[in-house]
Amino acid sequence: TPSSSDVQLTEEAVRRYLIRKPMTTKDLLKKFQTKRTGLSSEQTVNVLAQILKRLNPERKNINEKMHFYLTE
């Protein structure tokens, strides 16, 4: 059987996470792990960077770490 990815790295998926709560880059990467999306590390970084540039989320520091978030 072909391996199917159970998670898709899409703008809509990222948007939904960032509306729910502020997240660091690492938090986001954890949601879209390569073993779940089937993407390479490089693809994941590139696609996520493009999506974040498009979404242009708000940023704030929480515990001295930069978090992204979106409001509806």
Binding site: T24, K26, T44, V45, L52
Partner: peptide
């Protein structure tokens, strides 16, 4: 691994730094 996650986060932040 954790170090791979760190590397990816660093790469992503580097990509975004030009933009932010």
């Amino acid at each position: 691994s954790n170090s791979e996650a760190d590397e990816m986060a660093a790469a992503l932040e580097a990509e975004l730094n030009d933009f932010m």
